[in-house]
Design a protein around this nucleic acid. Structure first.
Lengths: 410, 410
DNA sequence: ATCTTATTTTTGATAGTCGAAATTAATCGA
DNA sequence: TCGATTAATTTCGACTATCAAAAATAAGAT
């Protein structure tokens, strides 16, 4: 629904624009922000005056490296103490808690293994709450300005977006995680799909892809995808299923971790490739987790010419290629980014992948999207989660602040 | 890219809101529009004053049917003479030109058959230009306020959106239709995909679906789809391929009209069903057009228990079901509307359709979207085209008008 | 004729933007 | 060292939207 244009709206819009510019381009002078946003210098004075008074941003005098003639620019940066967010990355076998400040600096981090059977006995919400509480205990100063809890999850979100309908993490689905944790800690809780965060992270990492339409495909222990439509992450609402990995590839095909048959994942995730390579019957229930070394070893074997290994990766490439071809018939991005451990095996999949793409009318007629590899898989999910959460604080909490209100400094 | 908030922007936004409200709810009093938009009565006075001065809208005194106490409302409606649009529906074998006024009233219409071989010899752009010119000649008064030419097309739009990369209408692709006609007639030309118009028309027809996320699937001489995301038609930009009918269903499968193998259309469009029913080899090039009666006769045959006919519709249901299941793994609408001649055959497809949907993780876990039939196929494409075009004039031409400028009356 | 009621307009305050002019804070050059 | 130059920022006044509240309007009801 479109909003009414009034002074409130104008302020929100323009403050949001300024915060976004600072978020994207790091500390910057008023002039640069004016140029980036299109606002007049006069407006920038007014807007930043408010934000300074509210302690959202700080002037960083003497930090500019340019030494030209004229009055030196005064760089503006986020006030790191203005807010904090607790980020939780929840995966099969692993959970990581990070505390970041409003400037995007990592304050504290705890890594933990996650026993796959744990939630059969233990209460998943209580377990997560304890982890978050631990972060608060360890950082009492920062805890007072906690504004968000954001959790990266795998699986299918429910319609309300506060719980999971299904997840590869066993016994996690079915609980209203968001509402429970939100009530307990008194801050909004964001559940974010890993695939979508990947899209956000990629967009952040590569400025050339900002403002474009991009699909990012993750190949690894799962197959996931996220899309951006002209720079906006697609599927914030309930319409964004983006269960690309569980798109059907072959009716009645190989058994997937999700219990269905023939999903792309069942052929192209690590467990699927290994199952094919070792000639395990394709209806054998998948292993809960595959050690990274084992997947790596299979790539090596294929590199040495092992027929079964090569064939397994070809099948994976075919599954992903047909999946992408089907995606393209509905959504036609300018570029496709491939990320995750699978990138190192992509040369083994490429031939079948391209052949499958070529069987698609859209790819044939339009020439197909540009395919890029994102070898550096370092932390796109963490970065995406952080960026998403901080941007949410920017727009939802700080952009609407009327002039009078003052954010508490730490 | 987000726009700057300034008085210009506010005016555009609120004028757009008012025009949209009038477009959706027909002639309405200032009070009702104020309520519908959320604007204050004072603002409505100001905004409508400008619009009246610009001759965009007119007061329709004495038209209100309510006879309550108090000052009677003055209904506001569009000034029909403020603008006109020439709408062209181009299909295999048929072309129709309609002239509509700003109020959405049909002024004139010409129907013509289209020889499938015509564009092998004749120039397609010149042919269309002649049809449009004819409409102008027949309606000289209206022609002076022509503001748009909008063409409903089938096929794949090129990246610029002004031409087709591929079309089932032979020899239509490859020309820059939009730019050529736009230059010739001096007005913007909109190329609109039929599938997408269907989405727009459906949304307009059923107010309950407005503001929701809906996929509309057309089954008939083609298989097409359009989506709305929270009331917004998806894929205005170059990212919207929506070639649902040419999504691959079975690798290396039946030959499609587009030249590829295994498209959904090749199983579920009228020609595909007929081919299966008559046991024609699935690699036989499809007939250019199927008479409506022939498709209807096949439905009758299946109704009488003819095995081959029943099996053909089952295959079609399976193709559409798997296609939708694949779509759902990327985009999860609240409702799916099925439209077109195929609705009458849907009961024959339903079993396989549902079975295929059930094989999808998202549908299984979330319960699947609500499926509706739109039996009344009367004119959703014409309505969608008209609505889309008039809304475009509203927002692009008339919402931005500054107070001073005056629209010419006819 | 007067009262009541619903719609619409008028009035005055407010909160944003912007352009142009003024101010500020640095380097450059003599 | 001091004025000239330059670029960043602030100040000022005009403008254009909104909104709330009060006033005006146009009917039916009594």
């Amino acid at each position: 629904m479109r909003l009414i244009g009034d002074s409130d709206f104008v302020r929100r819009q323009n403050r949001g624009l300024v915060l976004t510019a600072l978020r994207n381009d790091g500390p910057a002078a008023r002039t640069s922000v004016a140029e980036a946003t299109g606002l007049s210098p006069a407006s920038l004075t007014a807007i930043t005056q408010d934000m300074l008074a509210q302690n959202l941003i700080t002037e960083m005098p003497g930090t500019s490296d340019v030494k030209l003639r004229g009055r030196p620019p005064v760089l503006l940066g986020f006030n790191r103490h203005a807010a904090h967010a607790c980020l939780v990355e929840l995966e099969v076998g692993r959970v990581r808690y990070s505390l970041v400040d409003y400037g995007g600096t990592l304050v504290d981090r705890v890594d933990a293994r996650l026993d796959p059977q744990l939630f059969e006995a233990a209460d998943s919400i209580a377990y997560l709450a304890e982890g978050i509480e631990e972060m608060r205990r360890r950082n009492p100063d920062e805890a007072v300005s906690l504004r968000r809890i954001a959790i990266s999850v795998q699986g299918v979100l429910d319609r309300s977006g506060t719980g999971l309908s299904w997840s590869p993490v066993r016994h996690l689905a079915g609980r209203d995680i968001g509402t429970a944790l939100g009530g307990q800690f008194g801050v909004p809780v964001l559940l974010c799909k890993r695939g979508r965060l990947l899209a956000e992270g990629t967009r952040w990492r590569d400025p050339a892809l900002r403002d474009r339409s991009v699909a990012t495909i993750f190949i690894g222990s799962t197959v996931a995808m996220g899309m951006t439509v002209r720079g906006q992450v697609f599927g914030r609402g309930e319409e964004g299923a983006t269960e690309f990995g569980h798109m059907n590839h072959a009716p009645g095909g190989a058994l997937c971790r999700c219990g269905m048959h023939g999903c792309i994942e069942a052929y192209a995730a690590d467990y699927g490739v290994l199952r094919t390579a070792y000639s395990v019957p394709e209806n054998t229930p998948p292993a809960p987790a595959v050690p990274a070394a084992e997947y790596e070893a299979l790539i090596q074997r294929a590199g040495r010419g092992d027929r079964a290994a090569i064939q397994a990766f070809r099948l994976a490439g075919r599954a992903i290629g047909y999946g992408l071809s089907r995606l393209l018939s509905v959504f036609d991005p300018e570029a496709v980014v491939i990320a995750g451990p699978g990138v190192r095996a992509f040369h083994l999949m490429e031939e079948e992948f391209s052949a499958a793409l070529g069987a698609s009318l859209v790819a044939k007629v339009k020439g197909g999207p540009e395919i890029r590899m994102l070898a550096d898989e370092s932390e796109p999910i963490f970065n995406g989660l952080m960026l998403h959460t901080l941007a949410d604080i920017d727009q939802a909490d700080f952009a609407p602040l009327p002039t009078v209100s003052i954010a508490r400094p730490a």
